[in-house]
Amino acid sequence: MTQDILLNIALGVPWTIALTAVSLAIGMLLGIPLCAMRMSKLGLLRAIANILILTLRAIPPIVWLFLIFFGLDTGYVSFTPFQAASIGLGLITAANMAEIYRGAMAAIHPGQWEATHALGMSTWYRFYDVIAPQLFRVALPSAASYAIGLLKDSAIASTIGVNEIAYQASHVSQRTFRGLDIYAVAGLLYILLSLPIAWASRWADLHLRSRVAR
C-alpha cells in the first residue's frame, strides 16, 4: 500500500474528530434543557420533551441526515454536508444525553438536594455548585460509551458527502479498485480514535467515583 493511499484515508481523521466533537458538544448542551423539560412539573413541557426524544431516537440517523441535508434545502436554508451532519447527529445526541442526564439525576442522593435547601441556596447555585458537578461524574461513563458509538456512527455522514474517514476510504477504494486493505486501515483508524476516549473515561471514573453521593 502506498503512502499516498494511507495519507488519503488519514485525511478523513480530522473530519471524523470534528464531526464527533461538534455533535457531542451540541448534544451535551441541548441535552440539559431537554432533560429539564423531561423532568418538569408542567405536563405540557414533559409531553413536548417526550415527543422530541422519541422522534429523535426512533428515526434512523441516516434518515435524519437526508431529511436535513436534502429535505430542508429549500433555497432559504441550505447546509454544507458538515453542517447538516453536525445538526442531525447533534440533535440525536441531545435526545440520548437527556436520558443519560436523567438517569444520573436519579443516582444522586436525595440528601444533596435537602442540604442545599436547608442551607438556603438558590436554584442556580444548587445546580451549579452541587448537583451539576456530581451529575457530570455520574453521567461520564455512559456519556463516554455514547461518544464512542457516535464516533463510529459519524461514518454515515459519508453518505451526504462529509469527507471523513469512511468517505475517504470509499473514495480511495473506488479510485484504486482495492478494498480489503483500505477498509482495514479505516477500521484501524476508528479503533485508534476510540481507545483514548475509553482510557480517559476509565481514568476519570476511577478518580471521580468517590466524590459523588449515591
Partner: peptide, 19 residues
Amino acid sequence: MALRRSIGMVFQSFNLFPH
C-alpha cells in the same frame, strides 16, 4: 431563603458535598 438561613440543620446521613 431568609427563613432557612436563620435555621441550621444537621442530617442523619450528614449530606456533605462529596465533590
